[in-house]
Structure formats: structure tokens, C-alpha cells
Amino acid sequence: MSTLTTYARAALPLVPGASLLPFVAGRGKQMPALERRVDGVSVDPAHLADYARVCGFTLRDTLPATYLHMPAFPLHMQLMTDGKFPFPAVGLVHLRNRITVHRPARVSEVFDVVVRTTPIEPHPKGRTFAIVSEARVDGELVWEERSTMLRRGGGSGEAASGSAPLTDGQTRGAPVTWTLPGDLGRRYGSVSGDRNPIHMHALTARAFGFKQAIAHGMWTKARALAALEPLPDAYTVDVEFKKPIFLPGRVTFAADDGRFVVRSAKNPDITHLEGTVTP
């Protein structure tokens, strides 16, 4: 399925009445146990190189923690466009992303990737659920990812467990400035396959209520992780996506003792992303 048709299907529930159609998601209130898998995923070093280049990683024989998100991502889209999926995919907000590297994943390895949904939980601004992705090599779990998604509206007011702020937003490290070019969304989109219109161009982003194109959250996470190289063999990197980064733009990055934060360069009070790396 091409990205365009995926996004067309993802947007269908927004059309009044469309959610009554059997193949269109968005009808249910409960999250069914959905699962998708793809086996035998191998890595094209040239693609890895392109990814490393756009995110700032050194091209190593081991995969960046964020890399296996890419083979998982089409499965995420499949889940969210499944007829039994309770929400329209477009409009879901990627709130938090936690990746655990159990051991270094090598370029030459072959991965079996499986993704599944978790039950819906209440959140002050609406409802959340997560998509858990796992990558195995010959049955050995080497990598897992938990993408927490928010469906705005109908917030219960009570905070879901585990959604406490990752950091206090304070770091001692001197911030460095990144300049993000206007075409960053298109560049990362072409490498990652995530061509969500909100990342592509100001015009397409406006259709979804953004004044400008915004950076992919997973790019920002990857870029932050690249800045933290060298990384240990096994670790967890957990980030919260706070505010979108408009493109083009300038942000600051600061890290200290396993914590890191990306802020607006213009207004340091605006935090775009916060995260931790723990062994």
C-alpha cells in the first residue's frame, strides 16, 4: 500500500458517515487486541546510510535504536487503519516513544518484527493507547518500542500511570543549536516512508491545522540520540514529544547525565522534546 493511500484511508474516518463502512476504522470504543507482523526484515546498508545521514548518526555496523521503527511503522499504519481500530488515525498525537535496545542489532541480521496494540487508558487531555513493536533475531528479542498515542477529547482529568514528566526540563549541559531546514520533513519522509502531509509542506500541513510543516517526532528523537553517541550496547531511550517543531526552524539541544531536552532557540520556555537514556 502506498503511503498516499494509507493516509487516505487513515483520514477516511474524518468523513462524516464513513466510519459506518465495514473497512473503515474508528467505530469502536474499546481497543481490540490487534497484531501485525512482518518476518525476514533485512537492512539495506544504502538505506541505513541515508537514514544515518539525515538523522546525524555515524554509519556503524550496528543499527541506531530508532532505525527499526521504520520497518515497524507500516505495521502501525495497518493497525490504525484496521476496521476494528477505534479511532481515526489522522488526528492521533504521538505523545511518547520509548525504545529499548537489548543488544546491538547488526546490519547483516534478519529481523522478525511484530506490532500490537495495548488497551485504552485515560489521560487528562483525552485517551491514550500504545503500540508495542518488537524485533527478534532467531527468536531472540533484541529491540522493542512503545509508542504512546493520544486521542484528544473526553479527557478524564486523571493522569494515566507512568505519564509523569520524564525530566524536570533542567540540564546542566551547554545547549547546542540545530538549524532545521525547510525540506527536513520531505527528506526524512523519503527515507522513513512516513509521508504524513503535516510534515511535507506548509500547504499540506495547513490542511490539518498547522501553520507550517512540522518535523517528524521520530526524526527529533533520532537526531537527539545521534548527538548522544557513543551509546552503550544495551539501553532504553525514552522521549516525550511536547510541542511540534515548525520547519524551517532553530532549536537547542542540551544533554546531561542521561537526560536531554530540545527547546525552541527563539523561546527557551518552549520545550519540544524531553528524554532520557538509561542503561
Partner: peptide, 15 residues
């Protein structure tokens, strides 16, 4: 290694 940079490769050798 057509897309690997000098920095990539030297880092890999060092690592």
C-alpha cells in the same frame, strides 16, 4: 560502502 563517509568508517574501525 558507497554511502559511508570517512568518519563513519574510521569510527567503525575505532569502535
Amino acid at each position: 560502502y558507497k554511502k559511508a563517509s570517512n568518519q563513519d568508517m574510521l569510527t567503525a574501525a575505532l569502535d
